[in-house]
Nucleic acid binder design. Structure first.
Lengths: 225, 225
DNA sequence: GTCTATATAATGATAGAC
DNA sequence: GTCTATCATTATATAGAC
């Protein structure tokens, strides 16, 4: 996590950052709170500069968004080895929220996933690849049950882990964009049912699974006679 | 499902509907495809009327949105008894997509959940209440395992079921707003991993669950000494 | 580098003719 | 009921002074 702390310039007061960096950080915050409809004016106000200067430095609002995307993605990349080797995708995001300093980043990620676009697709694709690798290791170590289709399971578990957070914030919208508090609330509410589900499953018998497997096999043999 | 068919005016060609109804249906489609940033002009064009007429009939874009919300919610209410008594929350949405006619409605729901607001909160709250009731019945019937916290589990399973769909459409954005195809793809991709998870769980032992229960109990006794 | 002032484009909403 | 034409607002982006 050391690299993450450096990325966030911990110990450096905002006044010491270049205006460009202050604008970028302000944009990450506003985008994270309001979504990408946040105006250049609002970002400029938060950074303490004029709207014109924002465009002067980044060319356009879209270019500023792209810079924010890259910035967030770079921060995540530097931290991901730590996060993924010992956690599920949900914990991956929740871990950021444990440190309130990173709450703006979490807000930005949530907004990016809600809004769609390149960053959302990139994030999901990378999380899925990492999850597949992590799950394979855990299966080999005997901690996770094997799956009949490991790639499909990795994608599904990422969708479930990320999607549950998205749905939760729709149910309990963060106050003043405080994603730290929101995700602590999520962890509090979902830990027990998640662990129950992951440990014990939900259904009392395997009839539905068996029915599906039979159905799938007959479909397959029909397509390849 | 008969009432649903009536609501959608099946067998009635668009030209037979009043302009007000055509505008509302066009708005549901455009909102479902583009999100709620869809312009009044785009909605008017899709309905084959002038922008002014849209405002004339509904007063404002927000009022039109509210009418769409009510319309969608009413259609769902008429169908929900059918859908919830025999399906998980995910199936509830997927079932709509089985009939391409209802794809615009699914698109609208997805956009509403992504955008947040009253309809999203209302939908989630009602799905949760219904899921809790459904789960209780299934537990009583011996089909679903009991939970240590049934209310928390119902909320979590709704978040998981809905959220997985939201995340999936971010990964595979619908082409031309075809949510029918998108959700068939979702069902195809997630059926096996979902059934594995619900039938067998994910973890090979109960140590994480037990650790959490111990932690939770000590927290409780500390707060109530 | 930074600001003020302004151009330009799009949008929601209004007014009045038909 | 429906349209055309227009207004008012807001947003991004530009131009030029300091």
């Amino acid at each position: 996590m050391v690299s993450l702390l450096n990325m966030r310039s911990v110990g450096v007061v905002p006044e010491d950052l270049t205006a460009r960096a202050r604008i970028r950080d302000a944009a990450v915050r506003r985008f994270g709170i309001e979504g990408f409809g946040a105006s250049v004016r609002a970002i400029a106000a938060e950074a303490g500069v004029s709207p014109g200067l924002v465009i002067h430095h980044f060319g356009s609002k879209d270019a500023l968004r792209a810079v924010c995307d890259e910035h967030v993605l770079r921060v995540i990349r530097e931290a991901e080895t730590d996060a993924f080797t010992s956690a599920t995708p949900t914990d991956f995001i929740a871990r950021f929220a444990e440190i309130d300093e990173y709450a703006p980043l979490v807000g930005y990620l949530v907004q990016a996933l809600l809004a769609g676009g390149d960053l959302a697709a990139t994030l999901l694709a990378r999380m899925t690849a990492d999850a597949e690798s992590y799950l394979a290791d855990a299966v080999a170590a005997g901690r996770i049950r094997p799956s009949r289709d490991p790639a499909a399971r990795a994608a599904f578990l990422v969708d479930v882990g990320i999607g549950a957070v998205l749905s939760f914030v729709r149910r309990h919208p963060p106050v003043d964009g405080d994603y730290g508090a929101a995700l602590r609330a999520y962890a509090e509410a979902s830990s027990l049912p998640a662990l129950e589900l992951y440990t014990e499953g939900l259904l009392t018998d395997a009839s539905m699974l068996e029915a599906y497997l039979t159905y799938r096999d007959t479909e397959e043999s029909r397509n390849q006679p």
